[in-house]
Design a binder for these strands. Sequence first.
DNA 1: AAGCTATTCTAACAAGCGTTAGGTGAATCA
DNA 2: TGATTCACCTAACGCTTGTTAGAATAGCTT
Lengths: 200, 200
Amino acid sequence: MTAQHKRTEETGTHVKILAAAASLFRSRGYEATTLRGIAAECGLKAGSIYYHFSSKDEILAEVLDFGIKELHRNVREAVGALPAGASRCDAIAAATRRHLECMLEFGDFTATNIRVFSQAPVEIQKRALVARREYEAYWKSLFTDARDAGEIRGDIDLSIARLFLFGGMSWTLEWYRDGGLDARELADLYTGILLRGIAN
Amino acid sequence: MTAQHKRTEETGTHVKILAAAASLFRSRGYEATTLRGIAAECGLKAGSIYYHFSSKDEILAEVLDFGIKELHRNVREAVGALPAGASRCDAIAAATRRHLECMLEFGDFTATNIRVFSQAPVEIQKRALVARREYEAYWKSLFTDARDAGEIRGDIDLSIARLFLFGGMSWTLEWYRDGGLDARELADLYTGILLRGIAN
DNA sequence: AAGCTATTCTAACAAGCGTTAGGTGAATCA
DNA sequence: TGATTCACCTAACGCTTGTTAGAATAGCTT
């Protein structure tokens, strides 16, 4: 962070722009989101954004990166907070719960990762893939640990099971509306189906 | 269909435009897809598209509509072709198989429905929702039939199970690459997990 | 008070967008 | 053969886009 940006961080304009951008990226996609739209939501004019970001692509890159890393951090924390006697399937359930909570509650950044990633410029995709793969590797370890502990049947294709669960969670963004089940209940239903389906 | 368009159908330009549009919508999103890009892929100039369609929105509307209706028709056909002794869970498995096959094999139209729908102009969304809900209702009936036949536990939330499966299938578009499992094998793994997870 | 620096605005730019009007040549019909 | 229709093209329109340069404002420092 340059010295030039000291006051920026205090006022939080940088973060405010990211939040507004994430919200618009999520609902309209990348191309349909304009810098003038982002600026308006922050009480700024379009040109002013270039004091904080070097380009529109740069905003998207930061939104994607922040979304994945926050998610990753949250999920690791939730799994780490489990009591000592917890099973490996408990860990998968806890990860699912926190992943869904993040998606549904402070979810514009996560939703942008899910919905807009494939429309992003290739350059941006490459940058975002690093953090993505780290998060993916963590989930892989959750599943292999559970199988090594004998809690998942040996004939299950772990990649498929994991991707199936991810799909179910991601798709939630397409239909979820407040008022019915909350993230926690939803996650328990998902893991109820999945874990019973692959359990030993 | 107007008489004006008789020769159009023979040469198939109308369909060719839809296919090119679906392919571009899928990979780039709605706004990032230009009429000039669609035209180029058909060996046309941008203005010529207006002989076949009244607007860009109209193209999207037809792509969405065609995608859902083809999918719906295909899935019904696959379920209808089951032998007389098939169970209701067999029906769900057959529907899953055909749904995935359609998505992965002639999938630009289906993929557009999944990826671009939420970015479409509200007017277009409303139009597309009609066919969507019909397809959704069909899947609902598959699940309720299976439960009424005693093949699914009574304490399962059928909507959640169905949406979970849909999510798993839709997410496949994000990671699937040719060369590994084919659509049929994939569907069997999905239903293997899901149906064991909710079976009686 | 004067100067400096951080932050924003104004005003414009070239490029690309969806869309339209009118023209062109080939096929069809009288 | 002449007139008409089909399918496409050309050339432009008004508008919006991301981006930039330079001016303005406000706060801090000396």
